[in-house]
Design a protein around this nucleic acid. Structure first.
Length: 115
DNA sequence: TTTCTAACA
DNA sequence: TGTTAGAA
């Protein structure tokens, strides 16, 4: 069981936590980079995982990556995590891999080989 | 007050 | 991306 954070944040909270503008946060969502849930009133609510992802996106942007390649990196990483789950690797390694930054794919591939 | 969508001097 | 208008 992955202790997913049930604490949700408003877009205003996320602006403060990430330093990104609400405009950027909504735009990244339209690109499929994050998937906040909606309240019955239609407002977005972000999980801790969304905040962490936005922080990584911000870092990558500052490192010179365009949103297109950032999206690809995230998709590759997400897909790799699914493979780990499907192949049911030891929980110890699953937890380890989930902590890997999107950037480093080499070590993740090494884990996939050892299965 | 805060957030939402849509649109652009 | 910023910013703004009008609605919720």
């Amino acid at each position: 069981m992955t202790p997913e954070g049930r604490n949700l944040y408003s877009i205003g909270d996320v602006e403060k936590k990430t330093g990104l503008s609400a405009r950027q946060i909504r735009y990244y969502e339209s690109l499929g980079l994050i998937s906040p849930v909606r309240t019955s009133g239609g407002q977005r609510r972000y999980a801790e995982s969304d905040v962490l992802r936005l922080m990584r996106i911000k870092q990558m942007k500052e490192s010179g990556f365009d949103l297109k390649s950032i999206k690809e990196k995230i998709q590759v990483f997400e897909q790799s995590l699914q493979e780990l789950t499907v192949d049911s690797i030891t929980s110890e390694r699953a937890v380890l891999s989930s902590l890997f930054p999107v950037s480093n794919r080499a070590v993740l591939m090494k884990l996939l080989e050892k299965k």
